[in-house]
Amino acid sequence: MEVRTIKVFTTVDNINLHTQVVDMSMTYGQQFGPTYLDGADVTKIKPHNSHEGKTFYVLPNDDTLRVEAFEYYHTTDPSFLGRYMSALNHTKKWKYPQVNGLTSIKWADNNCYLATALLTLQQIELKFNPPALQDAYYRARAGEAANFCALILAYCNKTVGELGDVRETMSYLFQHANLDSCKRVLNVVCKTCGQQQTTLKGVEAVMYMGTLSYEQFKKGVQIPCTCGKQATKYLVQQESPFVMMSAPPAQYELKHGTFTCASEYTGNYQCGHYKHITSKETLYCIDGALLTKSSEYKGPITDVFYKENSYTTTIK
């Protein structure tokens, strides 16, 4: 009895394709271990004539594949690729409408935090270190965002349907971005203890939790000093293409032309909904596939993004 075979390709990165001759009487799992086709788990399936010449994702289970996976995804987590594939199996079914010149995501599976993050990423200057993220990001900007969303979920250790947080998501993504040249110098002034300067680099240099107003941050924000008295913390120097200011959701007025974009969060910790506000020729609110415009805006804002380049204080 002759062994019926077909020729397929296996890959971990969709760049390096490895030619395989597979036995049609055995499952993919018996031949390769966990195997995925377009995100779908085909591990328990036997090869079919229609699979001839198709590319299958496999887990990096030998040295060659491990090197290829690390170079593309910059992670050695053995569960990463499987999590990416199972997320992709959902995100490829989502709709990605162009809204006001940006790629958004039609609401499904509690994905409003991903839509808000995706919209924000198209408006701030950011370059990702893992080629996987950078490639998928370019495709997302062009309207094909399924891979990018699935990668975000995998890097953030999230599953489809789980509630997510924009600030946490951005923080994970910033860790995989090139923020080497970003720098922030802060000064804390206390009447009792004097003053202390701190220099922050990388992710810490672009994120701040405690106030939404970048102007206020430049002037000074009140913080408790270690001595128990009130101290003032203010920005001395900022070198970065953008800054992200966050605070627990509270009524906040966004003035046209003073910011790049913002995240609105309605609801409580267990259950809520994100919308995205962007400042173009007027203010726009993007909620999944829905767009509304207004000249002014007041609502429960939790993150505001500002364009920056270089700032030095005039406070002496």
Rank of each mutant, 00 (worst) to 15 (best):
R4V: 13
K7N: 11
V8T: 08
V8N: 06
V12N: 08
N14S: 13
H18N: 10
Q20H: 14
M26G: 10
Q30I: 11
Q31W: 14
P34C: 12
T35V: 10
Y36Q: 05
T43S: 13
K44S: 11
I45Q: 15
P47F: 05
E52N: 12
Y57S: 07
L59P: 05
L59T: 13
N61T: 13
D62Y: 06
T64N: 12
L65P: 05
V67M: 14
E68P: 06
F70H: 09
F70S: 07
F70D: 06
Y72P: 05
Y73T: 05
T75A: 09
T76K: 09
D77K: 04
F80K: 04
G82C: 14
S86A: 15
T91F: 04
K92L: 10
K92F: 04
K93G: 11
K93E: 11
W94D: 07
Y96N: 06
N100H: 12
N100K: 14
L102P: 05
T103I: 10
T103W: 10
S104T: 12
S104C: 12
I105N: 07
I105V: 07
K106V: 13
W107T: 03
N110W: 03
Y113F: 07
L119H: 06
T120F: 02
L121G: 04
I124S: 03
L126W: 03
K127L: 07
N129E: 10
P130I: 04
A132K: 08
Y138G: 14
G143Y: 03
A146E: 08
A146C: 07
C149W: 07
A150M: 02
I152S: 03
K158L: 03
L163P: 14
L163A: 15
L163T: 15
L163V: 13
D165V: 02
R167A: 04
E168P: 02
T169C: 08
M170D: 04
M170S: 07
S171M: 14
Y172Q: 10
F174L: 11
H176P: 02
H176Y: 15
L179Q: 03
N187R: 14
N187G: 09
N187Y: 07
V189N: 13
V189P: 04
K191E: 15
T192V: 10
C193G: 03
G194L: 02
Q195M: 15
T198L: 14
T199V: 11
L200W: 03
L200K: 10
K201L: 11
G202W: 00
G202I: 00
V203S: 10
E204N: 10
V206E: 04
L212P: 01
S213C: 08
E215D: 14
E215K: 07
Q216V: 07
F217C: 05
K219M: 12
G220E: 04
I223P: 01
C227F: 00
G228F: 02
K233V: 13
K233D: 02
Y234H: 07
L235Q: 00
L235M: 03
V236I: 12
V236E: 06
Q237T: 13
Q238W: 00
E239A: 08
S240L: 01
S240E: 01
P241Q: 10
M244D: 01
M245R: 00
M245F: 15
S246K: 01
A247Q: 06
Y252V: 13
E253K: 06
L254Q: 01
L254A: 00
K255H: 11
K255Y: 07
H256Y: 10
G257Q: 05
F259H: 02
C261N: 02
C261Y: 00
A262N: 00
S263A: 11
E264Y: 03
E264L: 06
N268M: 14
Q270Y: 07
G272P: 02
K280I: 09
E281N: 08
T282P: 00
T282V: 12
T282W: 07
L283H: 00
Y284C: 15
I286R: 00
G288S: 02
A289S: 11
S295F: 07
Y297N: 03
G299Q: 01
P300M: 13
I301S: 02
T302V: 11
D303W: 00
D303L: 04
D303N: 05
D303H: 02
V304E: 00
V304G: 00
F305L: 07
E308L: 09
S310G: 06
T313E: 11
